[in-house]
Amino acid sequence: MTYFRKRFSIISAIFEALIKPPETVDYPKGALMLPEGFRGALLFDTDQCIGCGLCVRNCPADALHMEKKSRDEYKLIHYPARCAYCGQCEDNCRHGAIYHSNQLVKPTDNPAGLIVVLKEKKEA
């Protein structure tokens, strides 16, 4: 009996699959479940940023760039197409200004979307 059960295990596997719901998602109509800690699109909190540049220093993909003239005059730029979503900038930031959300980044056909100015501070 065990012999037969083992011999026909693939047949029982495919007929069990008939009654089970499919495991794939009907993309893009189906719902995509992402866990809470998923490293998705990069978010930025302008008020928290003090322009220290720590996020730029360790960015492995050169996706962050800072043009800094002085403490009060700097420009922080993000290049989403280069970003590796590694989370290093989030780890480095001491003020919680830059962090990942758990949302996927939608593809874009807008060339202007390839350069995102996160913060531009000018001398008052």
């Binding site: 596997a13 495991e23 866990p35 800690g37 490293r39 590796a84």
Partner: peptide, 26 residues
């Protein structure tokens, strides 16, 4: 069939890794 079924099972391991670290493969 075995290809599809093993890759479904693999998804279980990937789900655990995604849940605890935030990345599916990287």
């Amino acid at each position: 069939t075995i290809f599809m079924h093993t890759w479904h099972d693999r998804e279980l391991a990937l789900d655990v890794m995604e849940e605890i670290t935030g990345g599916r493969v990287l």
